[in-house]
Amino acid sequence: MRVEQIAVFLENKSGRLAEITSILAENNINIRALAVADTADFGILRLIVDKVDEAETALKEKGFTVGKTMVIAVEVPDRTGGLAEVLDCVQKIGLNVEYMYAFVNKTGENAVLIFRFDDMTRAINSLQENGFTILESSQVYNL
């Protein structure tokens, strides 16, 4: 039910993002989804990739600070209000979203929402109880 996400520290310096994507390309690692969180001084790149451990090793070898975090992937129909329904449920349950990002899968029928909650176990249980589809990690890596 949990998906491993890679987070990379981004120093505020030009060319950092390009360097990371090149390293991943050289190692045949496919990026499934990505999001950048940034401040005036630094950023954090969050990535879902097909080969998590390889990506971590390759980036660390090149001197990047890399961390792994568990997130959950919720699949919703790609239509108006899809995200709103999930967030509405999250709010009612009283879960705290640390961060989230979204992408649309290849078929274009469904959207995948990546969430990091303060209480992941409760989030998974509550969302499932409310009828939402939570993807297995293998499903996400091979999307």
């Binding site: 996400q5 987070a7 520290f9 401040t39 954090i44 600070t65």
Partner: peptide, 17 residues
């Protein structure tokens, strides 16, 4: 930023600075 200091949340790194 070493691996042990790193967190994937902005607020964690901001708290550090």
């Amino acid at each position: 930023v070493s691996d042990s200091l790193f967190t994937d949340e902005i607020k964690g790194l901001e708290a550090l600075t």
